[in-house]
Design a protein around this nucleic acid. Structure first.
Lengths: 160, 160
DNA sequence: TCTAACTCATTACCCGATCTAACGATAGCT
DNA sequence: AGCTATCGTTAGATCGGGTAATGAGTTAGA
């Protein structure tokens, strides 16, 4: 392992693809919604996947437990999240979404998806087929190192 | 304009493609570098494109002029940016990168590109061709509404 | 021409978010 | 039972950002 200079075309593709993805992400974040703070939405998405403890959530979001505790305070005040004690371990606090919390996630996702849909609707079927295949490839790449060397907790992509 | 329900395949593609892009962006931000604060790097990238005035930069980065002024203070202390008076208009402050500032941008970009390169190196030529075409399509989509309805200032994709 | 209005950057002050350190509370081990 | 580790919260400090007010500089009109 040392990446002894990949060929120029691959290097250029890596750069261009990375830039394109980051630009899409940036545009979505800037142009869409803003009905909820980005870090709050990110938390809701994690809890939409499954209920979690506060410590888990803090680790996933790469934030200290006290910070996450404060965020949860706010999301609980908004009625999007509920704290409940863990039946097996009294130290843990289990977090889960309320129905309203799930609605918020659903609405925001619709807005974001609509942003992207509006841009690919005008493409030809052939072009959309290319994007479909590329998307599947990207998903494979992202999935590939989920259990890999570093096995990071980052991944939902809905973040911030 | 009203998007009267696009076909399901397109809607699914929009969702999956957006998610994939955002996940890539998130992973790059989390996994790579962290040698410089994200908002600082974003500013350096804008100045790497071309010298700008403080007000321009604040508008592009969507922060208030006072905040940008403070960020520039820090980047100037780090030796990455220099303020210089505009010869034609004494009110303006022209901002440009130092050699070291350019080096920082270069190094960070290399790290980020290497992250992506490491993931696409293992693909077949056919798969990389798909990604190449998809990247070009995405660049077209991003470019398409640069002069469009809202003509937002967001676009570098190197941000945050 | 010279003053009034406007523009750009900075300074002053406040708020919100995050961090580390310290503190109960609960589990688990010996 | 008692000791130690873990989880979440509270306390205090720091940092990034926002609005309001200030000062320098430019532009336009009497």
């Amino acid at each position: 392992m040392s990446d002894p200079a990949p060929d120029p075309a691959t290097a250029a593709l890596a750069h261009d693809l990375r830039m394109a993805c980051m630009r899409v992400a940036r545009r979505v974040r800037f142009d869409v919604g803003n009905t909820i703070a980005p870090h709050h939405f990110s938390v809701l998405v994690r809890l939409h996947e499954q209920p979690r403890t506060l410590g888990e959530l803090a680790a996933i979001e790469q934030v200290s437990p006290p910070s996450m505790s404060r965020s949860i305070d706010q999301l609980a005040d908004l009625g999007y999240v509920v704290r409940s004690p863990d039946p097996d371990d009294g130290r843990l606090v289990r977090l889960s979404l309320t129905g309203e919390g799930r609605d918020v996630v659903g609405r925001e996702r619709e807005l974001r998806d609509a942003w992207m849909a509006a841009r690919i609707e005008g493409l030809s079927d052939a072009d959309r087929t290319v994007l479909r295949r590329a998307t599947d490839l990207l998903e494979g790449l992202l999935e590939a190192d989920r259990g890999g060397a570093q096995s990071r907790a980052s991944g939902s992509g809905e973040a911030r």
